[in-house]
Design a protein around this nucleic acid. Structure first.
Lengths: 360, 360
DNA sequence: ACGTTATAGCCAAACGTTTGCACACTGTCG
DNA sequence: CGACAGTGTGCAAACGTTTGGCTATAACGT
């Protein structure tokens, strides 16, 4: 016995409970059945296509024994041997953002369908945190990575690309790399056309983060549409995607002259924050000021003043991202995909622009 | 060359891009420096405590070379050798639930602090999905697990305990196992005392899932407090924790006689759904019917009618969960922890009970 | 009876680490 | 000059898989 057992550290009271009980391994069931571990491996791997291994009888005996000792194959050992982990890393800006969490759900779901497992980390849109995340994923030898937090300039994506690890982008794109996003520009246009059709002339935009393609595109689509209609270009203020920063942005928009009669937020949560601020100013969303959000998260329809929003297929963004990743893993260079959004009109933008036209 | 290289599958156009480029390994840098891999390992592991490894000169040379070839240690190989993965598995009911995602953030944060990595999965509160998740985590040889989705009856937790893998519970408890939760019972009492002090007599509860200890305890604390004050026991309807099911529950509560003048939802999102329903019935939350939520998620304060809520330390629940896990890993049997919630009064419950007393 | 082929299973190497031990060398002290 | 400690490395085994190649036995056709 060369080395101290890993569990030899000074254990306390609970030692009895957490049995050192080495997890069952191929050897365990090999010894139990009196067979060789390679035989066991072949049977348990159900390489049934190539029936080249065990008799039906022994196969059954092996399966029986494996079940008995609660054998669970060691994925890292297998990964080590096979040089592929069946793991895909996922990097998201922030999982507590419901939109990103929903995209991740789509990813997890689709990955499972492809027999892959996922490992997700928060990057906080911070360079250092992202680097730590990526290194960690690389250390776990992920077969591929999905980034949900790309920056428009593509800076850190380009650096990662030199690693030679396959990857795709979701949610936000960066030029030159395969991505699945919502057609954010089209979404911005939808919002604008809706508000224009209601007669709004002066609109403001809560524009999101300047380095996130989704916010940028939504804003651009919105503003382009206004100017194309010969209307003044809507003022845009940079915000986060959360309620608090949406509130801050709304405060600023309210101070501009002429005061906008409509606000487009590139995220529903920012829109919610904006509606809160409006009310503090005794302005009723949907009456005095129209508000349109983006993504159509579940609560949008449930608010006391239901929120008009541009619905984006968040779950699908994630699952299609995985599908695209499979193509990349097969050596293809798939084209990026933009999924179409849909406008969902609700009360927050129901009234005509004239409700009480802001006179400043 | 015995076996076909893993990358020999029929590659398409992109083959040039994704260089097979085997990731650098200890051997790579060993050969590069002309040293033995064990030496390299020792240096790179910074077993600096035991300076007995390499001369400063070679150490530097090694680090240099490692950096040059972009060496990243293989965590699965190390885990295999050391019989510990430095990985902790996390099972959550649903990450798209902001509360759970926030708890997970606390976990990730604290785990990093302890030099651990996390692997999280959605269990959807479904037995099969959970089993699949757990098996997957076990296959990855996690050193420990954190469950955020325990059922009060402790059924599946008990089964897991037989595995001998250390674990703790967060968010929801199950009797007999170490857990970190909010003191949900106390939280329910806070909500009740607040409403009682406003003069409310008839209250209803959107009670959450019957198998989740948090919903159950919040409901119990709330109802107990009412009956202790000699008031009629509030009616409780089972719901989910999301807005849609909160809306459904509120509809049902509105049909009971006498109609409640106050509603307590065990989750903010359910409360938001409820407020939406109230308005559909031309009842103004905070005026005709008081509404109190739970958790105090960020948007609660930003709503057009800001939501009174019982603030729970979600992030801390997660981080303390990891701390507790460390104790368990050290062989102790820590006591469960209940973190104290705080009431945050806002407009949704500002008015006196008499606003328009429901006469049925 | 004998060569051929199929079947059932064992052997051993390899994947990338970590680590106890052994070895060679350099001083230092007795 | 010999014993001895310390220092910088190399060696090799082990962790749990997978898999190409091998062997031994059985089945079968001629």
């Amino acid at each position: 016995m060369h080395e101290a057992r890993a569990d030899d550290r000074p254990t306390g009271a609970g030692a009895a409970r957490r049995r050192p009980m080495r997890r069952a391994t191929l050897k365990t069931v090999a010894e139990l059945t009196g067979l060789h571990v390679s035989t066991v491996s072949r049977v348990l791997n159900g390489t049934s296509t190539n029936a080249r291994s065990a008799s039906a009888a022994t196969a059954e005996r092996i399966r029986q024994a494996a079940c008995e000792v609660g054998y669970v194959p060691d994925a890292s050992a297998a990964g080590l041997r096979m040089q592929r982990s069946q793991l895909v890393g996922v990097v998201m800006a922030r999982l507590a953002d419901q939109v990103l969490a929903t995209i991740y759900e789509g990813i997890e779901h689709a990955a499972l369908r492809h027999g892959l497992q996922t490992m997700v980390t928060n990057s906080w849109d911070d360079a250092d945190a992202r680097k730590a995340s990526v290194d960690m994923l690389l250390a776990r030898r992920v077969d591929a990575v999905i980034f949900g937090d790309a920056h428009v300039d593509g800076a850190f994506v380009a650096e990662f690309a030199t690693r030679g690890v396959p990857f795709v982008l979701v949610n936000r794109y960066a030029e030159g790399y395969p991505s699945v996003t919502c057609d954010d520009y089209a979404g911005g246009r939808l919002a604008a056309e809706h508000l224009i059709s209601l007669g709004h002339v002066h609109a403001g935009v809560l524009a999101g983060l300047p380095y996130a393609s989704n916010g940028v595109d939504r804003t651009r689509g919105f503003r382009d549409t206004f100017t194309e209609h010969g209307l003044p270009e809507p003022e845009a203020v940079a915000t986060g995607f959360d309620a608090a920063s949406g509130a801050l942005g709304a405060e600023r928009l309210l101070q501009s002259t002429p005061r906008p009669t409509a606000m487009f937020a590139v995220s529903d949560f920012a829109a919610i924050g904006a509606m809160g601020v409006l009310r503090q100013h005794s302005l009723v969303p949907g009456h005095h000021v129209a508000v349109v959000g983006f993504n159509d998260v579940p609560i949008a329809a449930q608010l006391t003043i239901p929120l008009t929003s541009v619905h984006s297929p968040m779950h699908e963004v994630g699952s299609r991202g995985v599908d695209m990743l499979m193509e990349v893993l097969d050596g293809h260079r798939p084209d990026s995909i933009r999924l179409q959004p849909e406008l969902r009109v609700r009360e927050s933008s129901s009234g005509p622009a004239g409700g009480v036209t802001g006179t400043g």
